[in-house]
Each structure stands twice: as structure tokens, then as C-alpha cells.
């Protein structure tokens, strides 16, 4: 039945920050970066959560404890059951962009679907040329996927900035647009994959345009309130498009000036 979740057992819950946890389930599911699942617990309802990594036998998603359901999800232990339905949405469809240089940009919790993009690139490294990564977080305590970041630093042209550092922070401080402006990137054979808060994407879009990127070279994922996942219940609709079904991944040019 279309609204019926599949019950799966949690394999691992791994704390990332005070508010973020990666939940791993042992499940083989045909999924791609940018897609999301409706994750649920009986009595607490459902929430759309994007896939942040997957393999033949497992699937991971990053949960941020912002509400009742997500707080309870993160308190679960291996062996506990959760409900999932999906995957929903179109995804980044990375296989379409083989042979390109790739620019990957993520901000805050928006780094979750971006991790799935980078994990895909890791697995299909030969299919892509240069990989430039730009991530932004609020503070040192908000950095998620620290282990991956160590690996990405070695693998890719990797850049990370914080809105605000602390006394131990030796990396860059400032808005993500700053490190993109200073990167000196050109748009030759490049494709950009981006996810982050609406305000960040707006200004990063402008920075990329200044560097010569066309809007059809920039692929973004939008956040909306997605309830049914089937392009029906109406919550995620924006200017006639159901973000849960027609999106959440769009060409920047198609959504940058959208009127809600």
C-alpha cells in the first residue's frame, strides 16, 4: 500500500554533533544521491530525510534533532525498528554528468545529500575529472561527517569554512561565498551540485555566475515540507512543481527566481 512503511531494524546510530546523528540500516534499496525517504515511528509520524550514503547492503541518513520524531529516532539503539517508505524524488542523476569536472557545494544540514554525492564520486572516481568541494558550517561544533572530511581532504580539492570559529579553529572563517569567490574557478566542463539553506544558495548562485557559471551548470536540491512523497498532498508544491516528485533536484535556472 502506498502509505505503508516497511519496518527495518537499525544497525547503527552514530553521533556527529550535539544535534546530528547518522542512522544506518541494513537494507538493499535502489536509491540515488538526492533522493529521500519518509522515516517514521508509530505515534510520532513521518519526516522526509535525505539519503547520505548507501551501498549494496546498507543505507545511511543523517537526522538532525529538530522535532519530536527526530529526537526519538536519534535515541534508538541497534536492533530497534523504524518505518521507511520511498525512496522519493528525482535525485542528482550523477551518471548523466560523467566526464565533467565537478564542483560540490553544501551548507549545514544540506551537506547530508551532498555526502551521498561525494560518496558516489568516491565509488566512481574514474567517471569524473577534477572534484572541488566547498562546505560551510556555522561553528566547529556543527561540523558533520568529520571522518569523511579527513578522507575528502586527501582525495579532492577540499575547502571548508565556518561562520564562526573558536580558539582551537585553524581553518577558514567567513561565508561560503567568500571561499568560492576566492577560488578562481572557471566554468570549463564543470557541473555544480549544491544543497543548503535558500539564502546560501541564492548568494552562492550569484558568486558562481560571477565566475562565469551558467545556471544550467548548477544543480541544486530544494528543501520543502514533503508529506506524501507522491506529488499529491500539496505541501511541497512551488509554482506548480511538486518538489517531492518533480524535484527535489532542479537546474538552478529553473528555480532561482521562483515565486512561492
Amino acid at each position: 500500500m502506498i502509505y505503508n512503511p516497511t519496518q527495518v531494524k537499525i544497525a547503527k546510530v552514530s553521533k556527529q554533533t550535539a544535534d546530528d546523528y547518522i542512522i544506518t540500516i541494513n537494507k538493499n534499496m535502489k536509491v540515488e544521491p538526492g533522493q529521500f525517504l519518509q522515516v517514521s515511528l508509530p505515534g510520532l509520524g513521518e519526516a522526509p530525510i535525505s539519503v547520505c550514503n548507501y551501498g549494496d547492503k546498507f543505507l545511511e541518513f543523517n537526522v538532525r534533532t529538530v522535532g519530536n520524531l527526530t529526537r526519538n529516532l536519534c535515541m534508538l539503539k541497534p536492533g530497534d525498528a523504524i518505518g521507511i517508505r520511498g525512496p522519493y524524488g528525482n535525485g542528482y542523476q550523477l551518471e548523466k554528468y560523467k566526464g565533467n569536472h565537478v564542483v560540490v557545494i553544501g551548507g549545514g544540514t544540506g551537506v547530508a545529500p551532498i555526502r551521498a554525492v561525494l560518496k558516489y564520486i568516491e565509488k566512481h572516481r574514474k567517471d569524473f575529472n577534477d572534484v572541488h568541494v566547498f562546505l560551510g558550517f556555522r561553528s566547529p561544533n556543527d561540523i558533520i561527517f568529520k571522518k569523511d572530511i579527513q578522507a575528502w581532504k586527501k582525495m579532492f580539492d577540499f575547502n571548508l569554512t565556518l561562520d564562526k570559529g573558536d580558539k582551537n579553529w585553524k581553518g577558514k572563517v567567513g561565508l561560503i561565498t567568500k571561499i568560492i569567490d576566492e577560488s578562481g574557478l572557471n566554468n570549463d566542463n564543470k557541473i555544480v551540485f549544491m544543497c543548503g539553506p535558500p539564502i546560501m544558495m541564492k548568494f552562492v548562485g550569484q558568486s558562481l555566475n560571477k565566475l562565469g557559471f551558467h545556471n544550467d551548470q548548477i544543480i541544486v536540491s530544494l528543501e520543502r515540507h514533503m508529506k506524501c512523497g507522491l506529488g499529491r498532498c500539496g505541501h511541497c508544491m512551488v509554482h506548480g512543481s511538486y518538489v517531492c516528485k518533480d524535484g527535489p533536484v532542479y537546474q538552478w535556472g529553473k528555480v532561482k527566481d521562483l515565486k512561492e
Binding site: 502509505y3 517514521s40 508509530p42 505515534g43 510520532l44 509520524g45 513521518e46 498532498c233
Partner: peptide, 18 residues
């Protein structure tokens, strides 16, 4: 036809309906 999906729980905290 817009709709929402919500869980309703009895006072026992276990029994309910989506």
C-alpha cells in the same frame, strides 16, 4: 485535495492510528 498525514495516539502511549 491537499491533505496531511498524522499519527493519533491513545492515552496508553502505544496504541494509535496514522
Amino acid at each position: 485535495l491537499c491533505f496531511d498525514i498524522e499519527d493519533e495516539v491513545e492515552l496508553d502511549g502505544k496504541t494509535g492510528e496514522r
